[in-house]
Design a protein around this nucleic acid. Structure first.
Lengths: 335, 335
DNA sequence: GTGAAAGCGCTAACAC
DNA sequence: GTGTTAGCGCTTTCAC
């Protein structure tokens, strides 16, 4: 049996109340008693049960996080930042990975409810009706990080996807490209997919460039789809001179596909990514990317969630963080 | 206030015991009562408190995991596998990331103790005396995954680092290399660093190849150190024709360094990695690597830990999983 | 300053 | 089959 507060009390010759007071750093405990208690704690190797504490305090200091893919560089970086921020605020993380299985989401949310987590962070936006309802009924603050589901009633910490995609496309135009391919993200229920696509289209039309449907494809944000979609783009005789992929992973897939076709990046085709994951620096050529402030995003997510929990704020609007173009080696100035 | 078992009991017109029985799927509950209870649960949106449950059952269904770096492809892949296995066994994961700050480890272990996790998985081996003692006193099963600290009393799920490094080096010899560089891992307290180094050395001497100290460097398993150490290896007039880096990340760093020096992989220099992370397939050239069964490793780790928890086994020995050479494009046959 | 006692939400004897 | 009761390990009034 693990040692409990009563054992400490007996050993120190005081009541459990006094031990509790010492534990919680309350004043009104005589110095010598405090010392005796601390000694007893030390001797016995006592650690208070957070379980019992949570029950009586009605507070668990737990946050639940749902990640769509732990192995993704983008999500694991946000998660890392979330973990850091949570920990430095005395919160612990219950982490769940739903990978492909969207049905798991409901299950996990239910576990979070049972565990009485104080707040939930979701980084996945394929929310179905059942989940939507469940979240709405939940009396636990929920915040979406880096994604924005369709439902207006959920709050998200995101970049302005439309503006970011617009700016990325504009940059490609400014360095002289006119045939600009696009590898978009999923358009179903995915606002970022839609907004990035709009940004791309509008940047083109605002600069008098006609939209060529043969230059447009949609993937699922992962490397393989970038590779496959790039393959399709390369099949047209009038190949794009630049391609904007709305995730770094897809950009890398595109670069690999181009290389495997015996063409070179950026000499033959320029490739622009999106996200600013670590991978951009890791591959050759290094990927020019429209970056999200990934680290900051995790931090802001947790900080906002904690304010939501404490009731300090009652956020109703999304939090929009700034995007930034990071020029590396994958886009060539053709002017 | 959240709804509790008593609310359900009142609404269903039964005692809390009956509700509890329905909740836990016990028999000896009349059908009609069971239905009334389930309805009440549904109506009220009741979810039992795991906190209260844990307290009385003295069982939390929680596992604690300490990861050295969440953003690393290798660790996040193991973590993903751990999460999956834990979840399918009804266990939840408390995840902590210690990044560089080793002092945090003690803090996290203490949190795990307070949270009454049933088992702990550590993927970090720079264990100091304080931690070692703490773990030894802990009455919670601890298992190391993919790493092996010096202390014999801890159990690890790992590959045979010596044999794996030996085989990797042997392969390079077999395809005709004689000047084989080595970028090792940390040697302090890191058994894998030492074992992989021994494997390399012995493979060379067993094949009558002299060990050249100018061909040997040590990094910290990360991309940057692979890059830097490769830079040093390139400074010698008698450059190696192949380099064995004991992590894929360092291998990628080495490849990038070679490219930045205007040389080509594998035409000018071959590069062999270690780990089998997703990155090997993602960069060009794809990295030939001595692979650990990463996914399986996570699974075995959790399964073993759960058996340790249930008392089903009392493992005292490490679990050694098989390694496998995955030939890709970064090593050239020079015979 | 300190302790006795009640209670957090649930389960598990034990009685009926 | 069902309900009463005690108790899990802690905190927190409320007396003293």
């Amino acid at each position: 049996m693990t040692v409990k507060i009563k054992d400490v009390a007996i050993r120190a010759g005081v009541s459990t109340t006094t031990v509790s007071r010492v534990l919680n750093g309350e004043k009104y405990v005589r110095e010598d008693l405090k010392n005796r208690v601390n000694e007893a704690i030390q001797d016995l190797g006592y650690a208070p049960s957070q379980i019992a504490r949570s029950l009586v305090r009605n507070k668990t200091n737990l946050l639940g996080v749902i990640v769509p893919d732990l192995t993704s560089s983008f999500y694991s970086t946000i998660l890392s930042s979330i973990e850091q921020t949570a920990t430095s605020n005395e919160y612990n993380l219950l982490v769940c990975n739903i990978s492909e299985d969207i049905e798991k989401e409901y299950k996990y949310l239910n576990i979070f409810k049972e565990m009485r987590v104080e707040g939930i962070i979701i980084m996945h936006e394929k929310i179905n009706e059942k989940i939507r309802e469940f979240i709405n009924k939940l009396d636990i603050p929920v915040i979406f990080s880096s994604v924005k589901p369709m439902d207006q009633s959920f709050i998200s910490v995101i970049v302005d996807d439309y503006a970011a995609a617009y700016d990325a496309t504009k940059y490609l135009i400014e360095i002289g490209h006119e045939r600009i391919g696009f590898i978009g993200g999923d358009m179903r229920d995915i606002t970022s997919g839609q907004n990035r696509y709009s940004g791309y289209r509008n940047a083109l039309s605002d600069h008098g460039i006609k939209i060529v449907h043969e230059h447009i494809r949609f993937g699922d944000y992962k490397v393989k789809s970038g590779y496959d979609m790039m393959g399709e783009l390369l099949r047209y005789k009038l190949q794009p001179t630049a391609v904007f992929a709305v995730s770094d992973d897809m950009a890398i897939g595109a670069v690999n596909c181009i290389a495997d076709h015996g063409l070179r990046v950026p000499e033959d085709i320029s490739v622009m990514g999106f996200d600013g994951s670590q991978l951009t620096e890791l591959v050759r050529p290094r990927i020019t990317s429209m970056e999200q402030p990934i680290h900051h995003m995790g931090k802001v997510t947790v900080e906002t969630l904690l304010r939501l929990i404490s009731g300090e704020i009652q956020q109703e609007e999304d939090i929009i963080l700034g995007h930034r173009l990071e020029v590396r080696d994958s886009c060539r100035n053709v002017k």
